[in-house]
Design a protein around this nucleic acid. Sequence first.
DNA 1: TAAACAAATGAATAGATATTCATATAATAA
DNA 2: TTATTATATGAATATCTATTCATTTGTTTA
Lengths: 105, 105
Amino acid sequence: MENNNIEFEDTVLLDEQVYDLAELFKILGDPTRLKILSAIQSKELCVYDIADTLEMTQSAISHQLRILKQARLVRYRRDGKTLFYTVSDEHVAEIISIGLEHTSE
Amino acid sequence: MENNNIEFEDTVLLDEQVYDLAELFKILGDPTRLKILSAIQSKELCVYDIADTLEMTQSAISHQLRILKQARLVRYRRDGKTLFYTVSDEHVAEIISIGLEHTSE
DNA sequence: TAAACAAATGAATAGATATTCATATAATAA
DNA sequence: TTATTATATGAATATCTATTCATTTGTTTA
């Protein structure tokens, strides 16, 4: 596929950049993942506690954490058998904040 | 479904708020819609010109514009037979900018 | 009025994805 | 080693969605 020379604020966006950006928003575009990110935004939580907080199964949370990990939005620290997850990206909170400004209008 | 009391930065998020926020990001999470928003972010374009710029069909663009319209992310002005679309939300550019900061790392 | 043009829409389809269930992996304790 | 606990993973499924194609709606002009 060719590059269509889409511009955003005086910058030419390559097709690949647009796809990467869409990928980021797609990941944020799921209630479960947003809840996970909110829950571990300012504190570490293990998988079980995230599942407990969201009232969802461990498996469902684990699947979503894998997606968030691949997108480098979360990281974890191991303590024995337990993995403690937390948000790894400084932009996430900012994006969510601005998003909330839009939706709360 | 009950409210799970998910917090984000000292604010309790209601389930409905999380769903609305996910809905916003879901809409931004598509390359075609991102390209449309970029193309009409600082200038008005008619449907045909958007389709031409993105090298896509008029129908595909029109379908996506409907979704963007419903989310109040774009608005249009009629001039004769032609509708000129532009971005209507001040937060869109901001969210895209921060998103690009993340993806370009 | 009819013709031409711009955009919207409905149905169909192919591809993507979130969750569930069962199981596997990994670390620790007995 | 075996049992237990915490997490990850693979397969299956149900749901969702982006595009295409055909058609319709709406506006202007001849």
